[in-house]
Amino acid sequence: MSSLFDPIQIGDLSLANRIVMAPLTRSRSPGLVPGELVVEYYRQRATAGLIISEGTQVCAEGQGYIDTPGIHTPEQVAGWKRVTDAVHAAGGKIAAQLWHVGRISHTSFQPEGRAPVSSTARQAAGQSFTKEGFVPNSAPRALRTKEIADVVAQFVHAARCAMEAGFDAVEVHGANGYLLDQFMRDSINDRTDDYGGSIANRARFTIEVMTAVSQAIGSGRAGLRLSPVTPSNDAGPDSQAQTLFNHVAEQLAPLKLAFLHVVEGQTGGARDYAPFDYAAMRERFAGPWMVNNGYTREMALQAVADKRADLVAFGRPFISNPDLVRRLRLNAELQTPDRATMYGGGAQGYTDYPALGG
């Protein structure tokens, strides 16, 4: 019977355990380049079987939050190289999460103040946090059909930059109402071209990105994050969510990705937010399966023992417990994160959470 603490091979990666640090935006990269504070933060958490970095922009247009790092310029590559070197020196493995927020952005983040891009021209409800504080998300423009290949190329460039920076793998962010999700869901996508309408058309962009990234860096170093029913970032439910994500899993299966990372329920909220058969989706993928959202120690142990998951990703517990793997192994008490220091700032609430003594 497999244990949460057993080693596992996923794609080209040999992991020391099945505990994954989920991607966590912390907004501590002024100038969009990770600095020494970020290096220390990830180094502290290197006992995870795999760290997945915070969302990292694949291009300038991909930014939607203040002080979030990118992975598309030489300066960003150099900054992340210091992070990956530190994680590797501490015995860990780390993947870069490749992120394009699409319409969840503001013109102040966009080159020359242009409109954000999306599958649609409809504005997303909600607000962006900018240097001027909270402001409504800007109205996007729908990508022209001929531009979509350019965005695929931006993901490929970022994946190659991640390899140059020393990452062990990449995770493409296809969840939480960001750009790939904006194409997949019919609650957002109102296109009439080859990327809109049918399930196959709406899934096309995601499959093209994953195919191109896999070809560029090797499928054994590429993963994808999906959130089939989450309402995050004004992502209304797809009218056929089960059929849509079953189709995506089927299309991904031949690529033999390193993993598929699935958020169960509402991201950061109710696990039973909406009905969905994750087991049926998993049957269509057949590769390493990573689960996420509110897992306790007991739930994680059971999920791996029952073979319902190969890996379990923890988010908020890793914020306040840099030694989470040891705490889970010992069934030790977990520290609670300070919400006031979640985003932005310095070392407080970031690198100053103590590890267990002894």
Rank of each mutant, 00 (worst) to 15 (best):
T351F: 04
A115Y: 05
L32G: 07
F167K: 00
Q335T: 15
A279V: 15
Y273M: 12
M21H: 08
F155S: 07
S187Y: 11
R141K: 05
L143G: 00
K307F: 07
G35Y: 08
G11V: 08
L50E: 08
Q57P: 11
T73H: 13
V39H: 11
V248I: 15
A253Y: 12
N233S: 14
I319V: 11
R316Y: 12
P228N: 08
G287P: 04
R141D: 10
I8K: 13
G346W: 02
R282P: 04
R191L: 10
A95K: 02
V39S: 11
P7L: 14
I52H: 02
T206F: 14
Y195G: 14
T267Y: 14
L328Y: 11
N176M: 11
V262S: 06
V87E: 01
L324E: 03
R204C: 02
I217L: 01
T47L: 06
S198W: 11
A300F: 00
L224V: 05
D6M: 04
P231K: 04
F314A: 05
D234V: 08
R185Y: 11
S2G: 15
V312R: 03
A212Q: 04
P288V: 10
G269C: 14
V213G: 02
S27F: 11
P288F: 12
R202W: 00
N137C: 15
T243H: 14
D338V: 01
M163D: 09
R45Q: 02
